[in-house]
């Protein structure tokens, strides 16, 4: 057994505590989102999201895009939860590879293109539509970058791009958390929607960039590679 000095031990405990504090709510709300999206697959139109956009659901492309996007989202969030465990990466690399393949396939072929189509009909003003378009493009690009970097065996760059990709995937979760918080604070539905969307997207991007900046000596290199 290695004997650590008390300071190092405290630091280890703090790191572990921080990781739990970071990942526990993410896992909880991801599973909640997973649970809330499953009922949509009874294909009934009783859900408020569908009733709000009833005229869009008459369009078969929008209809299929919606359900494909939902399915892709479920796969993405479920697969991504396994990707950031260093224990799985060390001892069971195959799980990491296969869940990664599922994630990339779900994002590139299903999630991002359908998200892009749906962004044209998103709720809110032109700015919100633009934000959804940016999200779709950024999600596609970051995931593609993550894939190409690992194919070129650039592990650190792959890690950074996958962080960025997951941050964009996680906006679905953070948006809902913020929406609930602002709803409890008696915000108007439209304002609540717009603010929680902007904060969730920009906040997630900011947090990931801070993490990448702290983990890498040369931050600009992470954007170029």
């Amino acid at each position: 057994m290695l004997s650590l000095n008390p300071n190092a031990r405290l630091l280890n405990y703090l790191k572990f505590g921080g990781l739990i504090l970071f990942w526990l709510p993410i896992t909880f709300f991801s599973l909640l989102l997973f649970k809330n999206t499953l009922p949509y697959f009874d294909f009934s139109s009783d859900y408020p999201f569908i009733t709000e956009r009833a005229h869009y659901f008459k369009d078969t492309i929008y209809y299929t895009c919606f359900y494909v996007h939902l399915a892709a989202g479920i796969f993405c969030i479920a697969a991504a939860l396994l990707q950031f465990s260093s224990e799985i990466l060390r001892s069971r690399k195959k799980i990491h590879i296969w869940s990664g393949r599922i994630y990339v396939f779900a994002v590139l072929l299903l999630g991002a293109p359908t998200g892009m189509y749906m962004s044209f009909f998103a709720k809110g003003s032109a700015y919100e539509k633009g934000m959804f378009m940016f999200m779709a493009v950024a999600w596609f690009y970051t995931t593609l970058k993550g894939l190409t970097t690992i194919l070129n065996k650039k592990v650190i760059a792959h890690k950074n791009w996958m962080y960025r990709s997951y941050a964009l995937a996680l906006t679905a979760v953070t948006f809902r958390i913020l929406h609930i918080i602002l709803y409890m604070m008696d915000w108007g539905s439209q304002q609540n929607y717009e603010i929680s969307l902007w904060i969730s997207v920009l906040g997630n991007i900011l947090v990931t960039e801070i993490i990448i900046f702290r983990n890498n000596k040369n931050y600009l290199k992470t954007i170029i590679t």
Binding site: I61, C65, L108, P113, T114
Partner: peptide
């Protein structure tokens, strides 16, 4: 991605 964005 391109076709769906064009369609959209």
């Amino acid at each position: 991605f391109v076709t769906l964005s064009a369609l959209g």
